[in-house]
Amino acid sequence: MSSVATKVPRQTKRVGHRARAQRREAVALVIPALLPIIIFSVIPLASGVALGFTDATLKRNAEINFIGFGNFIELLGDHRFWGSFGIGIVWAGSVALLTLVCAMALALLLNSDLRLKGLTRVLALIPWAMPPVVIAIVWRMIYNPNSGPLNGALEVFGIPGVNWLGDFSTALPAVIVVGVWSGIPQTTVLLLAGMQSISAEQHEAAAVDGAGAIRRFWHITLPSLRPIIIAVTALDFIWQFNSFGLIYVLTEGGPGGRTMIPPLFTYLEAFRNREIGYASAMGDVLVIAIMLILSLYLVNQFRQSKGSRA
């Protein structure tokens, strides 16, 4: 009896010791990465959210006062901000969607038995590897109304040149094309990897059943790629919505604010108008908006996929 009585506590003690050792181990593994995350990501993020509720400016020795929802109320009536928000949605939505379509087509081609696949794969890396600033510089040259190759080609066919980035009607589409160009590689690579994991038997079985290429794509390829497609479009949308460098160098939001996506608009508010409280409030609204759009999209997608499976 007595021996049992003494054994039990020792056992729990040993277990507790092990658990504690494991926890300490975990802490030691995690701390080095956690520190910078806390200092340079969590703290700024929290204070960024908080700044939105203040009247902070970048004046010398500026006082900061808590003003509650003042910035957000002002923001509600700020039609220029909402205009920019709309442009952001159009930009990010079109880029995400068009990238998906183009990348899907390219991935299908690369997954087939064509020659020149290797060359295409190598070339497809170019947009991925180019720094955004360089992408913007190149496309500014291509879109140049006087000496750009695009208008040069049009002229050969007798079509008058277009002022791509300067004209109000073409600026946003032109910028979207650049966004798609730069987004194709990454999406293609992911889709391609997804396609390669679909077993060949499935396709062959379907082919034996007399299904054509289009039907096979629709009924086999597309459903199996669904999770990847959802993830990729969602990520693309977020990245594009938050992107800054490409458009900043391409158009700086011009002409007449036609390509003024929200990050640019907020940047101007913070570092030109020096109203960082108000700019942070804009950032807060953008975060909430993205999360809202994203959750709607994801919920909708998952509901659909459940429905189609049932």
């Binding site: 220029r80 300067g166 109000f168 007449g256 030109r272």
Partner: peptide, 13 residues
């Protein structure tokens, strides 16, 4: 930067 430039650009276009 935030008002006049876009407005003039729109008028000139």
């Amino acid at each position: 930067d935030t008002i006049a430039t876009p407005a003039f650009q729109q008028y000139l276009a």
